[in-house]
Write a protein that binds this DNA or RNA. Structure first.
Lengths: 339, 339
DNA sequence: TTAGATACAGAAAACGTTTTCGAAAGTATT
DNA sequence: AATACTTTCGAAAACGTTTTCTGTATCTAA
């Protein structure tokens, strides 16, 4: 069963393809009678315009490209869910590709997306992407919106989580629970979110007049469970005193819990622990981990909305715009004893 | 900066677009001299054929469609990673869509994929999809390969995990540890994998001459943590005796652990627990969960390979083929006491 | 009645490729 | 020298749309 084409419908009604096209696309110069007749058979025969013919003619593909670092990161998956959701709603297809945290890969995949004639591009850039010329260049070809992992050096629309506020809330919560020697396990130096979460940490200390102790500010290049564990292990070895840990990700926080448990340090009685991102793991680990929940799906949906807006309203002067989404602190056992 | 077209290259060399096209696509009837010259400027100007023009002319899109139930299921994400990987390797784009476990959604999204002119389709079907007419019909339009959640009623290539063998290995391991009263928490009746995992369970019992106790075979419609917990809770309430739990997913197994811990039943001393799929959570929960690891990425890669094979070698007579991938039992604390 | 407007429909071009077919020129064979 | 074959290339059609432009018929207003 071949696909229905304009010419098929045209023949049935003894009209030209022009007329059929115009009827289907809602142009004014076709009579009500012929329009309804055409629309009817069009529906009956399940007519759908050939995507390539239409794309060739209109230079639009109704497709957006999405580049994420790694689909296995659950936050990436959550955002993607929001993107798929919203894209479907607006009638856009989604072309997906991973950059796998490699700069070269990101650059190459970006070019492939452009070559694929997508109408717009959604990118979460790599942390190593200090060089963002390729992003700039891409944005000259088509609308580009950045999400989650962004760069402030790019004059584009950015959708992110308010990292600083999230971290501030978390650390404030610790302070209000009476904690004063709060460890912060940070990530890579040049990471946007790591930097801002550290700022939130510092902001909270400042507000409550707690002196900054640089010994408590740890840096772990990889924000994994084992690195988190190692970081706390080292601290314990040095016999540094602390009564709380704010981990920049759930993984490092979980690593911290493991290290503490191995040293028989009770959580949260002796040391409270908080993570960031409220992953599935937070409610699996015992004690359940207090964590800063990020609205991933909303981020995805918003990114699509802004992108489609730019697709529909091409602008020459780009006004860099950063939308920050609020986080929610999920308080659980690891930071809260009812006593 | 506009994109380079065939005509641009043609003008530079004073030849026709036909010749340029043929040079680029490796046809024989173009002299070595002109070919190298054309190829050179083609590279210099970063020529890439317009996807729509090419698609319109050749009826190929170099794109495969992927339909998964839910990207938030980590096994779905893992498979997708394999798919993206392999697709990139073979030069195919990936169009992604979720069916969100709804039959109507699956049907609709399937149609959209066909309308999008993808060259082939990769589907993990919903468990409610008893009606698979839409899959059959789709497979008359284009190559379709099913993975993970499949249906044996469809004469297509299926890529799955050897659920029965995985379950058999898990239960055999329990038996070899001296367990005899083994609970099996199953999923929905009409689920392919649930059924086969149950078969593996039964096969192991039979091999070791352990009588089947139907009281120990639980069915939970939703394979979630809370349902797993509830199932074991009910069993404990009825005071049914058992010394091991084989959960059909990691989630129900984790639910089982929670129920046992709430009732102060030690794991694995009193009751051993095993899950299925070896998710991230398995190494987060204490005790670490023994689980059947499924080769998700390999599944994705294989699915792509078979699909592309069918795309390149269209066949009229479909030979239904089912490829089963072997699982690996990851033995951890929840089923293994060194004593 | 006529001039001008309006409503409707089709012809044709265009989007950028690929591919078929034939032409031209060169080479080999008789 | 005539024939046949080979090599190299281009003209043109085709893929299925959308859109512009033009034309005709009908309608309105004077």
């Amino acid at each position: 069963m071949k696909k229905t084409k304009l010419i098929d419908i045209a023949k049935i009604h003894g009209v030209s393809t022009s007329t059929v096209s115009k009827a289907i696309n809602g142009h004014s110069d076709v009579s009500a009678a012929t329009r309804t007749a055409i629309l009817e058979t069009s529906k009956k025969l399940h007519y759908v315009a050939n995507i390539h013919a239409k794309g060739l003619r209109t230079q639009k593909s109704s497709t957006i490209g999405v580049i994420i670092p790694n689909i296995l990161l659950s936050f990436n998956a959550t955002i993607l869910k929001g993107i798929l959701d919203s894209a479907k709603e607006f009638g856009y297809r989604v072309l997906l590709s991973e950059s796998e945290h490699y700069f070269e890969n990101e650059k190459e995949t970006l070019q492939k997306m452009i070559d694929s004639n997508v109408d717009g591009l959604l990118i979460s850039i790599n942390k190593e992407s200090k060089n963002i010329d390729h992003i700039i260049k891409a944005s000259e070809h088509l609308p580009v919106v950045l999400f989650d992992k962004i760069s402030e050096k790019v004059p584009l629309t950015n959708i992110i989580v308010d990292d600083q506020q999230g971290a501030f809330n978390a650390v404030e919560h610790l302070i209000l629970q009476g904690r004063k020697e709060i460890v912060c396990i940070c990530g890579a130096k040049n990471s946007y979110s790591s930097e801002h979460r550290l700022n939130g940490y510092l902001e909270a200390l400042e507000k409550y007049k707690i002196p900054i102790n640089s010994e408590l500010i740890l840096e772990s290049e990889q924000v994994t469970i084992s690195q988190g564990e190692l970081a706390i292990q080292r601290l314990l070895y040095k016999a540094t005193k602390f009564d709380a840990v704010f981990g920049i990700t759930d993984n490092v926080a979980i690593g911290a819990i493991k290290a503490l448990q191995k040293n028989k340090i009770s959580i949260p009685e002796k040391v409270s622990v908080i993570g960031f991102s409220d992953s599935d793991k937070a409610t699996i680990i015992v004690p359940n981990l207090t964590s800063v929940a990020q609205p991933g799906a909303s981020m995805g949906r918003l990114a699509v909305r802004y992108l489609i807006d730019e697709i529909n309203n091409p602008i020459n002067v780009r006004t860099p715009k950063t939308i920050e989404l609020k986080t929610v602190l999920k308080i659980r056992e690891s930071s809260f004893s009812s006593i």
